[in-house]
Design a binder for these strands. Sequence first.
DNA 1: AATATTAATCGTAATATTGCAATGAAACAA
DNA 2: TTGTTTCATTGCAATATTACGATTAATATT
Lengths: 112, 112
Amino acid sequence: MSKMGISKTENFSKNQNDIALFAKVLGHPARVAILQHLFKINTCVCGDLVDVIGLAQPTISQHLKELKNLGLIKGTVEGTSVCYCINPENWTKMKTLLLHFLDQEINQTECC
Amino acid sequence: MSKMGISKTENFSKNQNDIALFAKVLGHPARVAILQHLFKINTCVCGDLVDVIGLAQPTISQHLKELKNLGLIKGTVEGTSVCYCINPENWTKMKTLLLHFLDQEINQTECC
DNA sequence: AATATTAATCGTAATATTGCAATGAAACAA
DNA sequence: TTGTTTCATTGCAATATTACGATTAATATT
């Protein structure tokens, strides 16, 4: 019956859930590092990342899957390897969403 | 001996870990909603939030604690209630860090 | 065909997160 | 002092996340 441990997403707006989803996927240093590496070299295969990041191949593969599920990266098969890169459209979407959230006006009148 | 389930933060740079830490705390819609509410009304007590967010008081209190631990909000006791508000300095720090990450140049040359 | 390479998937272990009921602590009100 | 209000803390249950060894699937190479 109980659903503890689950986020009560139904309590929140689509905007709030979207922000949280994108933030969540950025909430692990390995995924941050993967994205930075993809930006840096602009084309990539999983094997490179295993060397660069220093985690086991299944772990990297799992992180890549999460990034792919949110649409931040896309991968195309090239022989036995897969070429991953940033998905510009969705990256821009995320950027817009997060920038808008981060740019909220801080009211400087006395508070606490 | 094993430490599975733990992020291997030692594999990553301070920058990458910091980005991940801030993103992680934004990675829950309740915390996003709390921050948005604080921006909106600029001064707040926990009780308000319980009504606004629709989660139990201990749950809200826990989310507030995480936001406080990262320095994004600060709270001052006022009688029996606590006044929480945005911590402008750290919010700006986070904003700078995340903006820089989000603003990476997308190389539009053919990739995959 | 047989072998090698690459990455995904499966299975499992360990830790983290989310949520709330119950309780506690501190200040206020009567 | 005795209650009341407000928020923090504790304890616990359920789910999620992280990580990796073993295996699988698909393509290349020999």
